[in-house]
Computed example of a mutant assay.
Amino acid sequence: MSRVCEVCGKGPIVVNSVIRRGKARAAGGVGRKVTGVTKRFQKPNLQPLTVTRAGVSVRMRVCNKCRKSLI
């Protein structure tokens, strides 16, 4: 269960990486053309956080959004 937030369960997602060429119409060109689409992963921003539970220190890997809400 690496790359997954231990609080909210946020994990990696698959997105498209779009490669374009050309000049935008607003800038006087003929428009941008899509020349390639490949899949890539976006990983969550996981940070280590030490939490004290019942007198025991536990290290957790949580995303930055959950870390800000816990502190």
Rank of each mutant, 00 (worst) to 15 (best):
R40Q: 13
V4K: 14
G22I: 00
G9F: 10
G28Y: 04
C8Y: 13
R32C: 03
I13P: 01
G9D: 12
G22M: 00
K10N: 10
G11W: 04
G28E: 04
A26Y: 05
V15W: 08
V14I: 13
G28L: 08
V34N: 04
G11T: 12
N16T: 07
R20I: 05
I19E: 08
C8G: 15
K33L: 11
V15L: 13
A24I: 01
G9P: 11
K10Q: 14
I19W: 10
G31Y: 09
T35K: 03
V7M: 12
S17E: 13
V14G: 10
V18H: 14
P12K: 14
C8Q: 13
R25Q: 04
G11F: 04
S17W: 08
R32Y: 00
V15Q: 13
R21W: 04
P12N: 08
G31I: 07
T35M: 06
G36Y: 07
C5S: 09
V4G: 12
G29M: 03
R32I: 01
N16A: 11
K23M: 02
G31C: 10
G22Q: 01
G29P: 00
G11Q: 08
G22E: 03
V18P: 04
E6P: 13
K10G: 05
G9A: 12
G11P: 04
C5A: 14
A24Y: 03
V34S: 00
G36K: 12
R32M: 06
V18W: 05
V37T: 15
S17V: 11
R25H: 03
V18Y: 07
V37D: 12
V14D: 11
R21K: 09
V30D: 10
G28M: 02
V37R: 15
A26C: 03
G11E: 09
K10Y: 07
V7I: 15
G9V: 05
R20N: 04
G36E: 10
C5G: 11
V18L: 09
R21A: 07
I19M: 07
T38F: 08
C5E: 07
G31K: 08
G22S: 01
N16E: 14
R25W: 01
C5M: 06
R40D: 10
R25T: 12
G11I: 00
G31S: 04
K23H: 00
T38N: 15
T38I: 05
A27H: 08
V7K: 14
S17L: 10
G29S: 02
A24K: 07
V37A: 09
A27F: 03
P12G: 15
P12D: 13
I13Y: 01
R20W: 03
K23E: 00
G22D: 01
G29L: 02
V37H: 08
K33F: 09
R32H: 03
V30R: 12
P12H: 08
V14C: 09
I19Y: 10
V34D: 02
V15N: 15
V14W: 13
K39E: 15
G22N: 01
A24W: 00
P12V: 04
N16G: 10
A26E: 11
